[in-house]
């Protein structure tokens, strides 16, 4: 991974808009658990077979602004991250309410190995 641009919660949407203006294709997002409280969200873009990434490091209990209004294709992967990591996205165009893959019987936020944010869970009840 050569070109990684760091970004914050406030600028991630505007940076994505810039990417779209530059003619980048949205590839996908990846979420990685770093420690008990933080996760990394990586946004991958492609233009003429050349990859560029945005890196957003956030707290697990924070809600992340959704980029699905910029790139519609992001809605699936954002729903997936909601399922797997219990992170909330604000302003999703199509929100499955954390039921894209997982039923109630399945474990909650299975991809968080270290800890699941309590705030998100209590917010649901």
């Amino acid at each position: 991974m050569k070109e990684v641009i760091s970004t914050t919660k406030g600028t991630v949407v505007s940076k994505t808009v810039d990417m779209k203006k530059d003619g980048y294709r949205f590839v996908t997002m990846s979420c990685v658990e770093l420690d008990a409280d933080t996760v990394d969200i990586l946004y991958h873009f492609d233009r003429d077979l050349h990859l560029k990434h945005l890196r957003l490091t956030i707290q697990k209990k924070e809600a992340v602004p959704s980029v699905s209004l910029v790139y519609f294709a992001a809605f699936l992967v954002e729903n997936e991250i909601q399922d797997q990591f219990g992170i909330r996205f604000d302003g999703l165009v199509l929100d499955y309410e954390r039921t894209l893959y997982l039923e109630k019987e399945a474990p909650d936020a299975p991809y968080c190995r270290i800890s699941v944010s309590r705030d998100v869970k209590s917010g649901e009840d």
């Binding site: 519609f72 809605f75 992967v77």
Partner: peptide, 11 residues
């Protein structure tokens, strides 16, 4: 993390 082609082709 695996991003497969059909995942991208659903939208």
């Amino acid at each position: 993390r695996i991003r497969t082609p059909t995942f991208a082709n659903i939208p």
